[in-house]
Each structure stands twice: as structure tokens, then as C-alpha cells.
Design a protein around this nucleic acid. Sequence first.
DNA 1: TATAAGTATTCTTATATAAGTTTTAGTGAG
DNA 2: CTCACTAAAACTTATATAAGAATACTTATA
Lengths: 233, 233
Amino acid sequence: MSEPLYKMVYRRVIERIAEGTYPPGAMLPNEFDLAADLGVSQGTARKALSALEDKAIVQRRQGKGTFVVLRTPENSLFHFFRLRTFDGVQVTPEPAKETVIKRKASQNERETLCDHPTHVFEITRVRSFKGQPFCMEQSVVPVELFPGLMERTPLKNALYVMFQQAYSCIVISAEENLHAAIADAELADFMGIEKGIAVLVSERVTRDLLDRTVEMRKGVYVTNELTYFVEMN
Amino acid sequence: MSEPLYKMVYRRVIERIAEGTYPPGAMLPNEFDLAADLGVSQGTARKALSALEDKAIVQRRQGKGTFVVLRTPENSLFHFFRLRTFDGVQVTPEPAKETVIKRKASQNERETLCDHPTHVFEITRVRSFKGQPFCMEQSVVPVELFPGLMERTPLKNALYVMFQQAYSCIVISAEENLHAAIADAELADFMGIEKGIAVLVSERVTRDLLDRTVEMRKGVYVTNELTYFVEMN
DNA sequence: TATAAGTATTCTTATATAAGTTTTAGTGAG
DNA sequence: CTCACTAAAACTTATATAAGAATACTTATA
């Protein structure tokens, strides 16, 4: 057999979400209707929907329905912001400084980001926790994907929520590379932290529903009061 | 309905793996036999087996069968050792120094580790990559769970492989907390690295098939040539 | 050695029934 | 008439079963 039916259903539902037929937060057709629409049985549609739920693309609740995942500040933070207190409590950072510029893409950015953009927006933010700056994040995104981004400043706290609401760009997954470094004078001055302390540096690549690389992000975290949490299975 | 049948099957298969009825690497009964054995239909047994596969407890291959997961040095490294080169290539560290001692458990260890042990083994290792020491790991495990561990020195490179082979303890998941630090004189001297450089420090809690906490591990990594890789979904 | 048939396994699909939610209709009290 | 409560119906996903297809390996045979 070439491709199982349930994978066809899976693909077609993703297409419909991506093209806006099923917008974020919306309820999908029920299993029977979706099955009839695509010419398969309910169980087959169901298998595809379960797979979509596993990938956190839809959310299902018995008796209620199936809904396109909606990025909220809470679940965005939970999924993509890994810093916790020592007690394991999620941190809700306050945004502080923010600058957005438009500039030419570096060669690496042009090669990595989707559609090989010539120009990018660079969003730089310093965030605080309990009044202390602890985090600097620099996001780079293609200009073509987020037109008019600069007019939206100041941007919302949770960037990915805004991506979804304003640009129908649904962030699904990310990869990070971490290493330890020492804050040099420039960084320390910029962030308002002490020079010479150890910081955690992360380089992130972010992907959306269609598996496009929509963001490259560099993060610098002060980890004397917070820790970066990782689960392994 | 109190508990779905497939969850009962799921639990009973885990029990059988834990008690050695299905040892690591062994083939499970096929879907029909398992179903008949437990008084359910093939599809229900299948659903349980799929769930076990999702949790990486068994491995399935069409036409061949279902097998209890076997920890090999390769997949152990892949799952639980997150350091990569900048090219994304998995690192295979060479073990260097190793010391194993038996000592009293700290209060934190007694509270965290399974069965609240009074004594623990502490395994300390310094590992090298391309001749340079880059990693210090200190594992703490309950004495009761791993009797005779000290007589097995020098221990294998991959600790979790040995846990499974010698003690039927199947490591399934782990959580890590990361932070950045600066190598002090004592650490630098012990590891054979330069004093004052930035290091990545991890504190890990490791769980087995029965969700017991079988290990606490502290790791110190030099990340100027390697990075710690994280995936987010 | 190559090829084909046979056997054992998981995978896919379909159908029926159960269980959880919400809406609607009905009923009685005030 | 209106409100509050209840019962029933409708609409949803979840579970269970069964039959046939696809895949992997073994064995027989030319």
C-alpha cells in the first residue's frame, strides 16, 4: 500500500489548519463528518485526530469535540520557556527593554530560515524576575513572514501567541543548543547584570505547523536563582 | 466503566517486564496470544502495546514482533547523554578516572531516592573527548537496589546498560535542571581543566520502569567544543 | 543459488457500543 | 407568565471487537 488512509487524513487536516479553514481555537468537524468528508470510516479519521493530538496540534475532549490548539501565554510559556525556580515553579517574567529593528539577514540566517529571506526583523528583549534582569532574548524572523511587525511595538510578552493571532503562524516545536559562558562587559552592561558571572546561553531554532523554520533565537539566562528544566524520555 | 481494558493490559505487561517474565530484549507474545491470555481482543491488546511503544518500553516491528526495549550503549547515549558537537554529531566519550565509594545518604538523597535508602553508592567519573577532559559525572544510587556494585569496578561506560543487564533495572525517563557556573580551583584541579572557565552544571533525577527514582546525578560539562541539545514539542 | 510458497507477525480499516457534554423540552411552583 | 429544576435527546469522543492487508522470515523446491 502506498500511504495509509489515516495519514492522508492527517495531512489534509494539517493543510486545512494551515490555510485557515480550521483557525486556531476552532472546533473541527466531528469524527463522523470528517470521515464522510474524506471518504473514510470514523475509526480511521479518529486515528488521524489522535495522532494530531499527540503532536499537540489539536486538543480533544470526550463529549465536547476536537479543537485546533490555541497558544495562550500560559501554554506558550509552559512549552517553550524552560526556566523554573528551584521549587519547580514556572517563572512568569516581566518584559522590560524591547527593541525591534529591520536588517539584512546574515548568511547563516538566510540558509536556516524558511524561504531564505534577504531581510529579517531582530527583536531584542531584556526581561526581569522580581525586579532583577535575568534574561536577554534576541529573536530573528523573516520579514516576509511577519509584515508590519515593527508597527506592532511594543510586542506582547509571549511572542508565539502574537505569531498565531496576527499571522496565523502556529509554532509547534523547537530545538535548542545550550552552553555555559561568562558575561563580558558589553553583555553585562546591556542586560544590567554583573560582569564576569556565569550565564546560560541558548541558540534556538523554531518550527511551525508546516515544519518551516520561522525563528532563530539566542537567549542568555542568569541561572543563580532559576534553573533550565529538561525532561528526557 | 472503571478502568479501560487496554490500560489493564498495559499495566499487566509492565508488571511482567518488571518481574522478569519478559526480560529485556525478549520477544513478547504476539497480539493474539497476549489478547487471549488476558481475555481481550487483539485490537485491545494492540492498543496497549502501542502505548508501551510510545513510552519506549517496547519496540515493535511489523512482521517481526514486539520486543522489550534493550538498552545498548548507543541508544542509552542517544536518550540520556545530550552533548553534541556543533555539527550535531553525537559524542562518544572515553571514560577516564572512576571512583566508587559507599557512604551514608544525605537527607535529600534519602527523601528523593526510592525506598529511602540509608546508604548509597557514589560513582564519580571524569570523561574525555579527543584526549581533553570535558565531563564530570557523579551518580548516587541506593545500595539496596544495586548490591555488589563495588565489586564490578571498573564499571562499563554506559551505566544504564549495566543497570539493566546486571540488575534488571530498566531506566525509562529522567529530569534535569541546568545552570551555568564557573569552575573553582577544586573542580578544575579534579577534572583537569582550566580554573575560572564557564561550565554547564546539571542535576538529574532518573526513573525506571516502575517509576522509581533510582539515581541522582550531578554532571559538570565543559561546553566550549560541545553543546547540550534539547528538543521541545 | 534463486524462487516461490507458507507461516507468523504487526498494521490498517471498519463497525458497533459505551460514555461524557451540552442543549432542549417539559413540568411544576411561585 | 416566569423561573428553576429535571429528564430526555442530540451530539460528541472513547472503547472494544473483528476481518483482511502488508511485512518479515523460513522452508521447500527447481
